[in-house]
Amino acid sequence: MHRVTFSSILLCAIASSPLIAQSDAGVDTIAASGYSGFTQSPGIISNPLSQPTLTPGALVLLELEGRFSQAVAEGGGRAFGSWFAEDGVTLNNGKPAILGRTAIAAQAQWDPKTYQLSWTPQGAQMGPSNDMGFTWGHYEGHSKDKNGEPVVISGRYFTVWKKLPNGSWKVALDASADEPAATGECCVLPKP
């Protein structure tokens, strides 16, 4: 509940900012909506207040990412697939690219009751024309193995967003990679 309150306050402050008033209509619409869709994992916080150079466009992308994450937490794979553009692409470790919303939706068939995917944006950049940008951050997936033991996967993600002619935003590209090895683990020689 604390996060929702903070997000609501943050969005109200952003909506009244003179920077928002100078931005395009898409930015105004999302920032003024009052939607508090940011979700954050403990220890991994993307705080716009600690990033004084965060632009209104980046805030739009962070808001979209929060809505996307919340929708997937509630709706699982079906919700995941619905956020993609018709020509969207997913790229995942060790797997072939999946091209197109229909194919992505066909692959994303998990139930949120058995697999929980969550992520936290850690940064965003909007392109100069305010119709395309990207976000990046950390993700976690929680499930259980065949013995009922918890399984946790984690890694980094990168999402490219594009604004469609009708003014809506969709995911053009979603890519993820497993969490890197802990510092020093990749190059340590076995001890005799």
Rank of each mutant, 00 (worst) to 15 (best):
I20L: 09
A103T: 05
D111P: 02
A85W: 04
V27D: 02
N47E: 10
L117S: 02
Q22R: 14
Q109M: 10
G77M: 05
G76K: 05
Q70M: 13
P56R: 00
C12N: 15
A31D: 02
A73N: 12
E86T: 15
T55A: 11
P18F: 02
L54I: 13
I30H: 04
N93C: 10
E65G: 01
S23N: 06
S33E: 09
N92K: 12
Q70Y: 03
I44V: 13
V89I: 15
G88L: 12
L49E: 14
P56N: 08
N93K: 14
W110F: 08
S23H: 02
A106V: 01
A106W: 00
E86R: 10
F80I: 07
G26W: 01
A73H: 10
F68T: 02
L61D: 01
F38D: 11
T29W: 00
S23F: 00
G100M: 03
V89M: 12
P56Q: 05
F80Q: 08
L54S: 08
Q51P: 02
I104A: 07
N93P: 15
D24W: 07
W83Y: 13
Q51A: 10
D24C: 12
A79T: 05
G34S: 05
W110T: 02
T120K: 02
W110D: 03
S23G: 10
A71D: 15
T29Q: 12
L64K: 05
P112H: 07
R67E: 06
T55H: 08
A103C: 04
G66C: 03
T114I: 08
V27K: 01
L54N: 04
L54D: 03
A13T: 11
F68A: 01
F38R: 11
S17E: 06
G75C: 06
L64N: 00
N92A: 14
C12V: 09
A21N: 06
G75S: 07
A108W: 01
G75P: 07
L64I: 01
Q51T: 13
R78L: 09
G57K: 03
F84D: 13
G88N: 09
Y35C: 09
A21Y: 01
T90Y: 00
G26F: 01
S118T: 10
G100K: 01
S36M: 11
S82N: 14
D24F: 06
T29M: 04
A79E: 06
Q107M: 11
S36I: 03
A32P: 02
G100V: 05
Q51L: 10
N47H: 10
P18G: 09
G37C: 09
G77T: 06
Y115N: 04
G75L: 05
D28K: 12
Q122Y: 03
K113D: 10
I98T: 15
A31C: 13
A15D: 07
Q109S: 15
L62R: 03
L19D: 13
A79L: 05
P121W: 14
S41V: 07
F38H: 12
L19S: 11
S17F: 03
L61M: 04
K95Q: 14
V60I: 07
L62S: 00
S46H: 04
G26L: 00
R101D: 05
S69P: 08
V89G: 07
I14T: 13
Q22D: 11
F38I: 12
R78E: 14
T90C: 06
P52Q: 08
G57H: 03
W119C: 01
P112L: 04
R67I: 03
V72G: 06
